[in-house]
């Protein structure tokens, strides 16, 4: 069994060989399913999720108020962002069944929904619904961040008007809460082992700005360390936005080259060469 996170101070290396400020390898694709309105597939290290967006469309018949998400009622003047997350039984080390009413999943759903509602122009689609289905294929930490990123990409693919990318990542700290180490380094993008052993938070920002759309911290950490963690997290979000943007641009470029779409109005400012 490899070393644990306490070995960081020996050579400033994390359990997987990264430095404190490095993201894991991110691989993303959009339009993975041609039949869907929008779709994406995203890997952050070994965390793998895929996303399918349907809508905006007329809301179907209500299923007994199984409220998956928020973002205003479908009867209202804003579109509802309905998120459903399915965590595959094989996604973690131990095969586990996640029921429909799993509290953790419900919370993830509403967090993702709120995060995207902040960026999507839902007021353009009154009385309608945007369905985001997320499937978790493999888990290795930073799950919420991966879900938000994948959902953003799929929404872009679906062509739903939005202000900017919602890019998310996690940040942590190199020593535990109880150790109370003043000199602890902040960490970027936690994997599963780090999430288990160290304090961490998930942060998502709107585009290139420093505006925080999501901030979730479920572990105990000293207030003094929070600032550093947050700064690193926001910085990570910016890197993440660049990566997402590159994926979208590359795909767009290829589609134009293949002639799938025409170079349209508004695409002039896009660098296509």
């Amino acid at each position: 069994m490899p070393l644990d996170t306490s070995a960081y101070n020996l050579a400033l290396l994390r359990v997987d060989g990264r430095r404190w400020n490095e993201l894991r390898r991110v691989h993303a694709q959009i339009r993975t399913q041609a039949a869907a309105d929008g779709s994406s597939y995203l890997e952050m290290g070994h965390t793998k999720v895929m996303c399918v967006v349907t809508g905006p469309s007329e809301p179907g018949p209500r299923r007994g108020g199984a409220g998956a998400g928020g973002g205003g009622g479908s009867g209202g003047k804003d579109a509802e962002v309905a998120v459903s997350i399915v965590i595959a039984g094989f996604s973690s080390v131990d095969r586990k069944r996640h029921g429909k009413g799993d509290k953790r999943t419900l919370e993830l759903q509403s967090t993702v929904s709120n995060a995207l509602s902040a960026s999507l122009h839902t007021h353009l689609f009154p009385h309608s619904q945007i369905n985001i289905s997320l499937h978790v294929l493999s888990q290795d930490g930073s799950l919420l961040a991966a879900l938000i990123n994948a959902a953003t990409l799929a929404c872009v693919d679906a062509g739903i008007p939005m202000t900017d990318y919602v890019a998310a990542c996690t940040a942590g700290s190199t020593s535990t809460y109880a150790a109370n180490d003043e000199a602890a380094d902040p960490l970027l993008d936690l994997n599963h082992q780090e999430e288990q052993e160290l304090p961490g938070l998930t942060v998502a920002t709107l585009g290139n700005s420093d505006r925080v759309a999501v901030l979730v911290c479920e572990s105990r950490v000293q207030v003094g360390r929070l600032e550093g963690m947050l700064a690193v997290g926001v910085d990570g979000c910016k890197q993440m936005r660049e990566i997402l943007d590159r994926v979208v641009r590359e795909k767009g470029q290829r589609m134009i080259q293949e002639g799938t779409v025409e170079r349209g109005v508004g695409l002039n400012d896009m660098d296509v060469d």
Binding site: P2, V15, D16, A183
Partner: peptide, 30 residues
């Protein structure tokens, strides 16, 4: 268990004789 391993070239040899490692030595957040 499957773990990622990121391979890198900036892990120093830590010998005081070596200059090249010194230049690429890693730093902490501070």
């Amino acid at each position: 268990i499957v773990r990622e391993v990121y391979l890198r070239q900036d892990i120093p040899c830590s010998s005081k004789l070596c200059q090249s490692c010194l230049r690429s030595a890693p730093t902490d957040a501070a």
